[in-house]
């Protein structure tokens, strides 16, 4: 006999819709909002000791050649404006040394492994109900 799913009421549908939204915002928004908050707090914290006056950067300090300087200036950027863009750096060595690499690999491989295993179990239910348990062909519905 075919599986008869329960009927979901309006309230249940609203709860399910909200739940998927909560999951989405929790996983994708919360970590970055917290990270941003911590970064802002760290930047706002008073530095210990007396700080040396910040020296105004020059194009030479930033390692730009004459053509690059010309283009930066055409874009309306001063060395001070460009400093942040030029000195933003990725630390790939840190990424490679981090144990998170192996955790990330395990998470992705484990996710696909379980996805395929559970899907296969559900797929057998679909096929059994669609074609019956006697191996007959579909009717081209």
């Amino acid at each position: 006999m075919a599986y008869q799913p329960p009927k979901q009421g309006g309230a249940g549908q609203i709860v399910d819709s909200l739940l998927i939204l909560v999951l989405l915002f929790l996983c994708l928004l919360l970590p970055f909002e917290l990270k941003k908050k911590f970064a802002e707090e760290a930047a706002a914290a008073p530095a210990a000791g007396e700080q040396a006056p910040v020296k105004e950067p020059t194009w030479t300090d930033l390692g730009q050649n004459a053509t690059q300087v010309q283009q930066w200036e055409k874009l309306g950027k001063t060395p001070a404006d460009a400093k942040g863009l030029i000195e933003t750096e990725f630390d790939f060595d840190k990424d490679l040394r981090s144990g998170w690499l192996w955790i990330t690999i395990a998470v992705i491989v484990g996710y696909f492994f379980l996805l395929l295993r559970i899907s296969d179990r559900e797929y057998r239910e679909v096929i059994a109900e669609r074609f019956g348990n006697d191996g007959r062909s579909g009717d081209g519905r």
């Binding site: 075919a2 599986y3 799913p5 329960p6 979901q8 239910e125 679909v126 096929i127 059994a128 109900e129 669609r130 074609f131 191996g135 007959r136 062909s137 579909g138 009717d139 081209g140 519905r141």
Partner: peptide, 15 residues
């Protein structure tokens, strides 16, 4: 649990 199992396969293909 709300998914109708057999309805997930609608193509006119053999088993």
């Amino acid at each position: 649990k709300y998914v109708k199992r057999g309805d997930q396969f609608t193509m006119p293909w053999p088993r």
